[in-house]
Computed example of a mutant assay.
Amino acid sequence: MEIGLDQDQRAFAEVCAKLAAELATRWSPGRGPDDTSPAEPDEVAWSRIVAAGWLAIGLDEASVVDLTVLVEQLGYHTVPAPVIGTLLAAERLRLGGAGQDLLDAIGGGEVRVAPLLRRDLTDYAGTAADAVAWDSAGAEVTHSPDGTGHHLGDPLPGADLTRRTRAVGPAAGHLALTDPGTEDRLRLTALGLTLATADLLGVMRAALDDAVEHARNRTQFGAPIGSFQAVQQLAADCLVSVEASRSALFHSAWAADALPADEAVAAARTAKAFVAPAAVEVCETAIQLLGGIGMTWESRAHVRLRRAHASRALFGDEHHQLRHLTGRLLGENGR
């Protein structure tokens, strides 16, 4: 058996990386909180995303590994576009039996939807009460499991500068959706966890790459700071975390398609439990390696750290995942 991305997936990663880098240049943290670019992509950026087929990839029989390749690049470049939210919302609608016309309109960028999550972001919401629309910049509607559509309200406060969570407004029409069943719900959970973990891996990789590049070029006492043992040790520890996270993530992505649904969720929870705190730690260490520049608003270091914290909470942080894994292994009463 071959472990790793195949030739097509590596080529896809390169294409995604190139477009993600271009989209990232259209957004700026500005010079302070009141000067940050909107989290919503402009029309040019949205048209590029649609033309690349990113919104439809989940509806075209792509594997979860393929989706993971895409989302990792979105995280690496902290792209401010609701691609992940659209993928999750579209998949939930597909499993609920939504019409092909609606799915095609979502994949073509004509209808913008967002996933309905619990207010604490730990799971999909069962009703619109005490729920939010996540990754919903530019979205028009979110749907309850019973098919009720809801208008979206104002953005809610949050740490992530590149994504928006919005309040759920009044009802707006109804779709004839069905209960997707236990196995499909589990696979949807595994997908959400895996994509959240992919975003984390991308963010931590970018943080480390930025810090290492700085250490190569910044001189102190007549030598690059990257030649100092203390700096090398910090960077090496971060690299170990990145590579271990990559292994956990892609096992989760493979499991989402290849293993029974309950085992796929367990693999996804294991990956999220490991990668979530590791990503935050790597982003924090990168700020230390960047020194003074890492403390400035203009640096993307704080943008990555904010996004890492937000994705850490998405579908539950490591404590949430470990509680579920413990319950699966030992029973709900711990016996």
Score class of each variant (00 low, 15 high):
residue 303 V to A: 04
residue 257 D to T: 01
residue 324 H to I: 12
residue 334 G to K: 00
residue 108 G to A: 03
residue 1 M to E: 09
residue 256 A to G: 00
residue 247 S to A: 14
residue 293 I to G: 04
residue 81 A to R: 06
residue 227 S to F: 15
residue 121 L to Y: 04
residue 21 A to D: 15
residue 308 A to T: 10
residue 259 L to S: 02
residue 135 D to K: 13
residue 250 F to Y: 08
residue 291 G to A: 01
residue 329 L to P: 12
residue 200 L to T: 07
residue 257 D to S: 00
residue 30 G to E: 02
residue 100 Q to G: 12
residue 23 L to E: 01
residue 150 H to Q: 06
residue 292 G to R: 04
residue 55 L to F: 07
residue 196 A to F: 14
residue 110 E to R: 14
residue 249 L to M: 14
residue 219 T to Q: 13
residue 82 P to A: 03
residue 101 D to K: 12
residue 68 T to W: 11
residue 275 V to W: 02
residue 91 E to F: 14
residue 236 A to Y: 06
residue 201 L to H: 09
residue 328 R to G: 06
residue 44 V to K: 15
residue 85 G to C: 08
residue 308 A to F: 04
residue 87 L to D: 04
residue 313 A to L: 14
residue 289 L to D: 02
residue 59 L to V: 06
residue 332 E to Q: 11
residue 102 L to N: 11
residue 20 A to W: 00
residue 3 I to W: 15
residue 133 A to F: 00
residue 24 A to I: 02
residue 119 R to K: 12
residue 9 Q to V: 00
residue 317 D to W: 03
residue 244 A to H: 10
residue 41 P to N: 00
residue 198 A to V: 12
residue 180 P to F: 07
residue 93 L to C: 00
residue 265 V to K: 01
residue 115 P to M: 05
residue 285 T to G: 03
residue 73 Q to C: 01
residue 207 A to W: 11
residue 188 L to G: 09
residue 82 P to I: 06
residue 132 V to Q: 07
residue 158 G to I: 03
residue 250 F to H: 08
residue 98 A to V: 14
residue 93 L to T: 02
residue 279 A to C: 08
residue 53 G to I: 10
residue 116 L to Y: 11
residue 210 D to L: 07
residue 125 A to Y: 11
residue 289 L to H: 06
residue 95 L to Y: 10
residue 267 A to C: 10
residue 98 A to W: 11
residue 105 A to Y: 07
residue 215 A to M: 10
residue 17 A to T: 00
residue 7 Q to Y: 15
residue 241 S to F: 09
residue 189 T to P: 13
